[in-house]
Write a protein that binds this DNA or RNA. Structure first.
Lengths: 239, 239
DNA sequence: ATGGGATATATCCTATAGGATATTGTCGAC
DNA sequence: GTCGACAATATCCTATAGGATATATCCCAT
C-alpha cells in the first residue's frame, strides 16, 4: 500500500522507442554513421514522431548518436584509434578501483545473493554454436558483469561513469573473436572470486589485467576492421 | 571557404530552450525539487511544447532533472551528504590526474594562448560588491577553470566526465561564502602556475589540495543549508 | 568534360488539438 | 476528528498538419 507512492512506473512510448533504438544500435542493426530519419523511424517502429524525437535527444546526450542542427541525426561513427585508447585509459582508471571497493565493502551488503549474482554474471552464456545471436548474448553478459561490479563499489557516480563508458564501447564488441570468450570468462571468474573472498588488491589487479587483455583482444580486431572500412574516411564518392 | 562544410550550426529552438533551462537551474532560478510543467514552461519561454520536451529529455540524461512517467518533470533535489561525499571522491580521482596530464602535455599545445587562458580563467571576476550577480559570476568562472583544465588533459573522455561532475555540483555552489572567493583564486593560480611551468606532480598536488579545501568550504555551508531546509524532507504541509 | 546555378524533393522543425491519466479538493461516513 | 471514496481539474502524452530549410538532381554555359 505504501509502495504505491512510487507509482506504477509504466513505461511510456518514449521509453519504448529509446530502448528499441538503443538495442538496435548496440547490436549494430543500425550501422555506425548511418543516417537516422525521424519520420522514417516513426513509421518503422509504428510510433509517432514526438517520442522518437525524445528518445533521440536522450541518446544524443549519451553520445550514441550525433545531431547536426538542420540536417538530422546519425549513429555515432566508430571510435578512432586515439579515442579507443582514451576509452581504455579511463576504464583502467575507474574499473580496478570499483573492483577494489567492491571487495572491501560492508559485509551486510555481502549476503549470499551478491556472491551468487557475481558468479552467475561472470559466466558467459552457453555458446554451443557461434551464431550471431550467441555472440550478442556474450556482449550483453560482459556489459552486465562490469556494470554489476560498478554497482557493488558503493559509489553511484562511479557506477554511472562505468556504465557510460561501456555504452561507448558497444560498436567494437561485435568484433570479438569467438575463442576469446573463454578467456574472458576465466578472467571474470578470477575477479568475482577475489571480490567474494574480499581481497581488494587482488580484485583490482585481476580487473586491471582483464582490461589490458581485453584491450589487446579488441585492438587486433579493431585494426583489422579499420583496414576493411578504410582508415577514417567517409565513403561518399562514386568512381 | 572550406569551413562551410561544417554548416552554419545555427542554434535551433530546442537548443535555446536547453540553454535557458540549464542556466536557470544552475543559477537556482528554478529551485531544487521544483515541479516543471511542460506547457507552463512553453508559455513562459514563448516556445512550443516539443522543443521544451526535447530539452527536458536531454537534461534528464544529464541528471539535472528527474522524470516520473505519468507525473512530469522536476528539478533534481539537493544532494544528500552521501552523494556529496561521493561526488568529491570522484573529483579527487579525476581532476588531479587531469592537472597532471595537462602539465606534461606536448609543448606544441603549450603556446602562449594556453598560459594566458589559464591565468585569465584562474582569476575570479572583480567582486567589489557581494551582490548575487557577482557571486553567480564566480561560480561560472570556477566551473570554466576546472573544465579548461580537463580539456588541457588531452583526454576528451576525462574532460567530459569532469564536466558532468561539475554540472551536478551546481546547487551547492550558491552557498559559498564570499570570503572563500579569494582563497579559491589563490588555489586556482597555484594550479595554473604549476601547469604553465610544466610540473606535473606539483599540479596534481595543488589540485588535490584545492579540492579538499573546496570540499570543506562547501561542507560547512552544506550542513548549514540542510538545517534550514530541514533534514531531507519535503515541505508541503500547511499548518 | 567540368563547374556553377536553379529548381525540385525530402526532411526537419514548429505549432496545435484531442484523448488518457495522475493529482487535488471536497464530501460523507464512522 | 479522521479515514475513505468520489468527482473535477490540471497536466501529460500522442497524433497530425503546415512552414522552413538543407540536400540532391538536372540543366546550361564555358
Amino acid at each position: 500500500m505504501g509502495e504505491a507512492l512510487v507509482g506504477p512506473e509504466r513505461p511510456i512510448l518514449a521509453d519504448k522507442a529509446y530502448t528499441e533504438l538503443k538495442s538496435r544500435i548496440l547490436r549494430s542493426a543500425l550501422a555506425p554513421g548511418e543516417k537516422l530519419s525521424i519520420d522514417g523511424l516513426a513509421k518503422r517502429l509504428e510510433i509517432s514522431q514526438t517520442p522518437i524525437r525524445e528518445a533521440l535527444a536522450r541518446l544524443e546526450a549519451e553520445g550514441l548518436v550525433r545531431r547536426r542542427p538542420l540536417s538530422g541525426y546519425k549513429v555515432t561513427p566508430l571510435l578512432t584509434e586515439d579515442e579507443f585508447e582514451d576509452l581504455f585509459g579511463m576504464r583502467q582508471l575507474l574499473e580496478p578501483l570499483a573492483a577494489k571497493r567492491a571487495a572491501d565493502l560492508d559485509e551486510n551488503l555481502h549476503d549470499g545473493n551478491v556472491a551468487n549474482n557475481l558468479r552467475m554474471l561472470a559466466r558467459t552464456p552457453d555458446f554451443d554454436s557461434d551464431a550471431a545471436l550467441s555472440r550478442l548474448d556474450f556482449t550483453e553478459a560482459d556489459k552486465r558483469f562490469h556494470n554489476y561490479v560498478g554497482q557493488l563499489s558503493g559509489s553511484p557516480m562511479l557506477a554511472k561513469a562505468i556504465d557510460r563508458l561501456d555504452a561507448h564501447l558497444h560498436l567494437h564488441r561485435s568484433y570479438i573473436e569467438p575463442k576469446s570468450i573463454a578467456e574472458t570468462e576465466r578472467e571474470h571468474l578470477a575477479i568475482a572470486a577475489a571480490i567474494i573472498e574480499r581481497q581488494p588488491l587482488t580484485a583490482a589487479e585481476a580487473m586491471s589485467l582483464h582490461l589490458e587483455n581485453s584491450r589487446s583482444r579488441h585492438a587486433t580486431a579493431f585494426l583489422r576492421s579499420e583496414a576493411v572500412v578504410g582508415p577514417r574516411k567517409e565513403v561518399n564518392r562514386t568512381p
